[in-house]
Amino acid sequence: MQTVFFYVFAALTVLCALMVVANPFSRNPVTSAMFLVLTIVSLAGLFVQLHAFFLAAVQVLVYAGAVMVLFLFVIMLLDLKEEERRKVRKFAVIAGGLAVAIIAVLFCTAIGQTTAGIGVQPILEGGTAALGELLFKHYLLPFEILSVLLLVAMVGVILLSKKDLK
């Protein structure tokens, strides 16, 4: 049963992610944003299967909720029109398709021949207390580095998007 659910959610995630960037039916950015919501929700399903219930809830609340609202705001504020269709170059499609096919074959054979790894025992059972403990003790340093990373992103966004007045 677990495996079935995994494959369902995994397929949904990949399919929706594909629709975000290459939707054959619509070139509207709002549609892309909506498919991004679906991608995030399917990802949350995968988190549930890993017993990371809190993470799944946060994923839906923060990403599918708050962040997506911001995305939509930006799209509406910029008043984006339907994206222009780029001319598809035959050579690029053939080369890209070939590369993807080769990688897919390599992957499938590799996965078919591999022996199961050690695997990872879930160290968290969903609770927020355990998560906080882990974040502020064992993984304190990567957590703090991420805060510096966010600072860099903020400075960068302001710098690159600001109009130079002078």
Binding site: I145, L146, L149, V152, V155, G156, L160
Partner: peptide, 24 residues
């Protein structure tokens, strides 16, 4: 590898912005 990846991203992100720094 977790810290390595996060630090790698911190470095890369700063360098991307520095590359695009000349807005003229």
């Amino acid at each position: 590898v977790l810290t390595i990846f996060v630090a790698l991203e911190l470095t890369s992100l700063s360098l991307y912005i520095l590359t695009a720094f000349n807005k003229r």
